[in-house]
Simulated scan of single mutants.
Amino acid sequence: MQHLLADFADRRDWGRFHTPKNLAMALAGEAGELAAEFQWLDPEESARVMADPAKAAAVRLEMADVLSYLLRLADVLDVDLEAALREKVAINETRFPADG
């Protein structure tokens, strides 16, 4: 996915705009747009959001925007997201041990 996005950006000469700061700000903005899709919904409505085709499409597209900016940021900063996630889960295993 990172190669797909890098190629897309390269073909448009967007690399000069894809600085860590700009990508982090864009990621935050897109996360806000995703949150807006759930604003004012009660818990039950939010759980059923994907049942409405129009809302489902909007949620999917906002999720894709969030993912694309996160992947671009990881690419620009040379962060292995899988390794970072595994490290974070290991940390959380000690912070929040499972009962039993």
Rank of each mutant, 00 (worst) to 15 (best):
A31I: 10
E44Y: 08
F96C: 06
K88H: 10
G100P: 02
V89E: 13
E37D: 13
L4P: 01
S46H: 06
F8H: 10
P43E: 08
A35M: 14
L73Q: 02
T19Y: 07
A6R: 15
D65T: 03
D13C: 07
A56R: 05
F17C: 07
L41K: 11
A51D: 15
M63N: 03
G32V: 07
K21S: 08
E82G: 10
E82P: 01
L34Y: 01
L73P: 01
D10T: 15
G29R: 08
R11D: 07
A28V: 06
N92M: 14
D13H: 13
R72N: 06
A98D: 12
S46I: 11
V79Y: 14
D75V: 00
V49K: 00
A84N: 10
E87D: 15
V79P: 01
W40N: 14
E87N: 13
A58P: 03
F96P: 01
L71A: 08
A31R: 10
D42T: 09
N92S: 14
R16D: 06
V49H: 01
L34A: 04
Y69K: 03
F17K: 11
A74I: 03
F38R: 08
L23E: 00
L61P: 00
D52F: 02
R48H: 13
T94H: 15
A26S: 11
A24K: 03
L27E: 05
A83K: 14
P53G: 01
T94Q: 15
V76E: 06
E37C: 15
A51F: 03
W40Y: 13
A47N: 12
L67K: 02
G100A: 11
E82C: 08
A84F: 06
E82M: 10
K55R: 14
M63P: 02
G15T: 08
L77G: 04
P20L: 06
F38N: 07
E30P: 08
W40Q: 15
